[in-house]
């Protein structure tokens, strides 16, 4: 972790020094907080953080919920119960994020209207729905592998002491599976944070959109996109620190 940081600090310093000494190819002034213009630009860029975080958090919670609802019937011994879940996973996994985003944002309201549900989908919810659905196929597989890693004898023992299927899941299987499920789910959160950048193309005012808009007015893509990448880096590093902590905590629980 610390070595990783050192490399980035060094790289950042190199870039900065080149920018200051080189005549005219670099223009850090656009995001130089010591000038009024630079400061307002940086503030504008950083203003996208909240939207990116909000978007990612809501999409992750939805994806975790949908994923569980898809995963549970997917493990049934009845193939007709299993089938819709398999189809959903294969189907959703096959669709690239960007086309799905366009379809949800431009197409879904039309479909809903024709079905008699006139709804409007703004960029924020369009992005959330897309990210949640697209990611849910992966979370479903995470749940499945986590739940299937619990020995079958646990279910059998629970059923023989009279628990129903849902009680067995709730009190016996999920509490044990959760420590194998949570770390990969948290990793999936990182994935969503990065994919949320796609929301910029439908006009969602998040980090990437703001950077794009500033580039159009300032004509300094190199500096602005460099800052953008650093913004994501900080966000993801914070989350992966949390994931690491979670993994350690879950791991030590196991050996207790």
């Amino acid at each position: 972790m610390t070595r990783f940081f050192k490399i980035w600090v060094l790289l950042g310093a190199c870039l900065f020094v080149t920018a200051c000494t080189n005549d005219g190819t670099w223009g850090w002034y656009v995001i130089d907080p010591s000038t009024a213009q630079g400061q307002s630009n940086v503030r504008f860029l950083i203003g996208g953080f909240w939207a990116t975080i909000q978007l990612s958090l809501i999409a992750t919670v939805l994806s975790m919920t949908i994923g569980l609802l898809v995963a549970l019937p997917g493990m049934s011994s009845n193939r007709w119960v299993r089938l819709p879940s398999r189809v959903y996973i294969e189907f959703v996994r096959a669709i690239p994020l960007l086309p799905m985003l366009f379809w949800v944002f431009y197409g879904l309201p039309v479909v809903m209207r024709s079905l008699g549900f006139p709804i409007t989908i703004d960029a924020f919810w369009g992005a959330i729905i897309t990210l949640a659905i697209s990611d849910s196929a992966f979370t479903a597989e995470i749940y499945r592998s986590g739940i299937q890693s619990i020995p079958k004898g646990q279910t059998e023992a629970a059923r023989t002491v009279g628990l129903t299927y849902s009680q067995t899941m709730r009190y016996v299987i999920l509490p044990q599976a959760i420590r194998r499920i949570l770390p990969p789910l948290a990793n999936q959160f990182i994935y969503i944070v990065k994919m949320s950048a796609f929301a910029s193309v439908i006009g969602m005012q998040e980090l990437t959109r703001r950077a794009n808009e500033l580039v159009v007015t300032e004509y300094r893509p190199l500096e602005i996109y460099t800052l953008l990448i650093l913004e994501y880096l900080v966000l993801v590093l914070i989350i992966s620190f949390f994931v690491r902590w979670l993994e350690r905590k879950m791991g030590s629980d196991e050996s207790r």
Binding site: A158, V161, G162, L163, T164, Q167, Y171, V172
Partner: peptide
Amino acid sequence: TLGPMKAR
């Protein structure tokens, strides 16, 4: 106690 509490 799990069985007696949840099932009974």
